[in-house]
Design a protein around this nucleic acid. Structure first.
Lengths: 213, 213
DNA sequence: GTCTATAAACCGATAGAC
DNA sequence: GTCTATCGGTTTATAGAC
């Protein structure tokens, strides 16, 4: 066989290049604000050419968001204990930073991808598992707080910034980039990563869960 | 004097009714997806009538988001110690639940309201203050995690659900409502509120900040 | 696989009557 | 303060040539 037609990483593949550019623009401006013309312009093709590869804007969005949600569901379905669940979640975030940033900051994209139900269910299952046995209402709050601590802590350290594409003027991203990087906080590159970052985030989440005892 | 023309609560005032309906729809579907026709239909007036009260869709959005951001800035400008800052933040969330839910979940609305710079600056200042003196990169991460713990914990307990408006069929909200309320987690009304909720959230955030020692 | 051209729908916003 | 009518622009999506 020559090539698997789906989910192959082949960085030169047109479908993958479309996904990459689309994801970047979706994260930057939001799904609704990003037009197909914007995406095709950046790829140097026309809007109509996009439709050869994806049947609709919605399908393009789905193809981008599916890997994260599928893997998350698989993870939760394994019924892991709280610590394993949290550790796997941090690992998931590492491998799907940009998509996570998209769906976390742009609920409209979740809705457009028809992923609201699945993500609500995921969140429910995670919170339930973190809340422990015979949970009080306060235990659910602590579970959600632990989940939020990891998510927000991770996003500070591993935020996807507008790509400084030297080939294009990239006019519209200038303001955002300046506002975030020169904001007086360390740049993403300065934070711990990998195992060290995971350890820090795990400590915050476990501290939250223990804060009720 | 008869009436202050700005920011009076007068629940019968047309401007306030518009803000209320607009906020609800913005939270539900996102700013970009919500059309002025949708808002005016729900108010029983026409789209054109909206323009008598607000010069543009953007101005309507700004009028809705401004109270939260203004008060947040005032709060941070006071240079409070971490515990006071966190406590005031929880109080702020209590008084601006819906607006917070909007800007937290729909970054497109932040951008449209031209509030990205101010909110980035706010976040930076909060994280800095929570990170303590001579912070390491890991301290910033813990600060962001503490902030996220409070925000997400609060949102679980005080989430704004689609209004069950018996006067209108409210077709489009059915799926969302069913998915969220019947999801197997306590309903917002079942969680602690006020001082008790504040105490729980404060404990989670302080536990995160202490997790580095 | 990419193009030009265009259809069809919707949007924000304005003009002007009442 | 609300209405009807409409303008100008953009969007997603399709048809058909190459």
């Amino acid at each position: 066989m020559r090539r698997n037609s789906q989910s192959e990483h082949d960085p030169g593949g047109t479908k993958e290049r479309i996904q990459h550019v689309a994801l970047e623009l979706f994260v930057l401006h939001g799904y609704e604000k990003t037009s197909l013309r914007e995406i095709s312009d950046r790829l140097g093709i026309t809007k109509a050419a996009l439709y050869y590869h994806y049947a609709s804007k919605q399908e393009l969005l789905k193809s981008v968001t599916q890997p994260l949600i599928d893997e998350f569901e698989l993870l939760v379905a394994g019924d892991p204990d709280p610590e394993t669940l949290l550790r796997s979640y941090v690992d998931l975030l590492h491998r799907h930073q940009a998509v996570f940033q998209l769906v976390a900051n742009d609920h409209a994209s979740l809705a457009a991808a028809e992923l609201v139900e699945r993500s609500v269910k995921l969140r429910r299952d995670v919170v339930r598992r973190l809340a422990g046995p015979e949970p009080q209402p306060a235990d659910y709050i602590r579970a959600a707080a632990a989940f939020g601590a990891i998510s927000q802590g991770f996003m500070l350290a591993r935020r996807v910034e507008p790509a400084a594409d030297p080939a294009l003027p990239d006019v519209e991203a200038t303001a955002e980039k300046a506002a975030e990087t020169a904001a007086g906080l360390p740049a993403p590159a300065d934070y711990p990563e990998g195992a060290e970052l995971t350890r820090i985030l795990m400590d915050t989440a476990l501290a939250v869960l223990r804060s009720g005892s």
